[in-house]
Design a protein around this nucleic acid. Sequence first.
DNA 1: TCAATACTGAAATCTGAATTTCAGAAAATC
DNA 2: GATTTTCTGAAATTCAGATTTCAGTATTGA
Lengths: 280, 280
Amino acid sequence: MEGKSVAARIHDAIHRLTPAEKRAARGLLGAYPTLGLAPVAEFGQQAGASSATVLRFVSQLGYKSYPDFQRALRDELEERAKSPLQRGQSASASASDDNFLDRFVSQAAGNLRGTAGLIPPSEFEAVCQRIAEAKGQCYLGGGRFTDFLAGYMEAHLRLIRPGMRRFDGRPATRADQMIDVRPGDTAILFDVRRYDPSLLEAAGELAARRAQIILITDEWMSPVSRYAKLVLPCRTALDRTWDANGSLFTLVEAIIARVTELAWPIASKRIGSIEPGGVP
Amino acid sequence: MEGKSVAARIHDAIHRLTPAEKRAARGLLGAYPTLGLAPVAEFGQQAGASSATVLRFVSQLGYKSYPDFQRALRDELEERAKSPLQRGQSASASASDDNFLDRFVSQAAGNLRGTAGLIPPSEFEAVCQRIAEAKGQCYLGGGRFTDFLAGYMEAHLRLIRPGMRRFDGRPATRADQMIDVRPGDTAILFDVRRYDPSLLEAAGELAARRAQIILITDEWMSPVSRYAKLVLPCRTALDRTWDANGSLFTLVEAIIARVTELAWPIASKRIGSIEPGGVP
DNA sequence: TCAATACTGAAATCTGAATTTCAGAAAATC
DNA sequence: GATTTTCTGAAATTCAGATTTCAGTATTGA
């Protein structure tokens, strides 16, 4: 009884319902689930029944209160949003059936699109400008796996601006590097679940030293966000055991590209001085 | 101003928001639109802000009350439910116009799709099986930037199978590690342009020692392919100065996922012995 | 036709959620 | 480093919406 969808409960209960209650049921099924998320009075009006009737209807469904019923609807909605395959079953189902790579890739593409929706353009822009300004030092660090993203990012940004530094190795050595951190410095941290406690600690220390923290994380939001000035959350969910960090990687590349654009006057000189052939 | 989606209003307003209000904004974007349909108190708690802050956030968005804001969300939801087919075009058409991140991301998604088309399923499968078999050693290495991909891949595969080794550091030290290579070993090499001459050299050496080379490269095909048994080319083209390696990264994750699947009987034991909590 | 019963919605009540206030904390500015 | 300003959440207040009551209306069965 507990884990049943509201729609299913309606179907179970419909024969027990009185005429006015049935109107409520029909109304809800017709505008599902939005009508149920409205206040009782509106629900009633839309469905052609009184508030009292709607309430009786909801209680017939087995919910002990109207808010309780609404919570169930919200949970359902959330559930549906999370599952990656709610639309286009025919198209994607046939394509994905046999081919692992195709299926994986289309999920990754979905995460990418989701990420673009999750990050406000102005937030992205603010991050890039902060990096391109090249004021003070810019530190980078990540967790067990994400550390490689930090490394990749550093390898690129190093070419573009001075003052890039990476927290290398284990928490122990981190403390040494902290002493150099000064107010106004920037720190780019990567943290996805399961979130790294030592990184949280490091973030606290950085915040205490007035460094501005840029956090790149997943949709469940690392606790580091507490200390971060700017947060870029990425969609990483996958229908398998582990999450996928591809969206973080692409975000990193987007940042690199944008920062390069912004800092071009300086960057072009730096790059030119390294690669005598010039820039392709 | 009237007919604007809530998400759009958030994007407009986000730079005016205070830190705590931004937490509310991100919380909502992360669980859109369900969180906004919950009572203020719950919204606040979920997003890590107080009710008062959530209210201020909502009013920044231009709604004169919380119920008013919720009505807007419900209307949007209803709208979306009514027209199941014309999602996307209005959103993506206007978005790609001015928005750097969206544009970048949609190119990256295109590369992803292109990559799936470029790689024959059988080739992909062969690579994964080769790795999952776990016969002999498996070496990893890459160029200046792609080395981080090798690192990322190793960090994961290390959990799944024994015998993972990474070529660390500069060409000089590489020679040392070569002496351990035996016939039947596997080497996974990453090489995108401009192709790394030292990697080509290493590949030659590996081939001479009868190691089987798996090459992950771009669509212009590294010269290493000369020595490789299996080649996975990825689309990396971009309409800007540099190429994007996001598709390589996602390919790496796809391989990891598939290998995990194939090697599950062994992998689950290994992982269980490291993380006492077991696999999520 | 007349009870007897079930159903319904208007109005009263009452609970719980939205809103406002305010004092302390944090950040920015000088 | 001190001062001003802004930001924030806890607590008080207000208000809207959920719940209950009850009288009127429809329905059923004799």
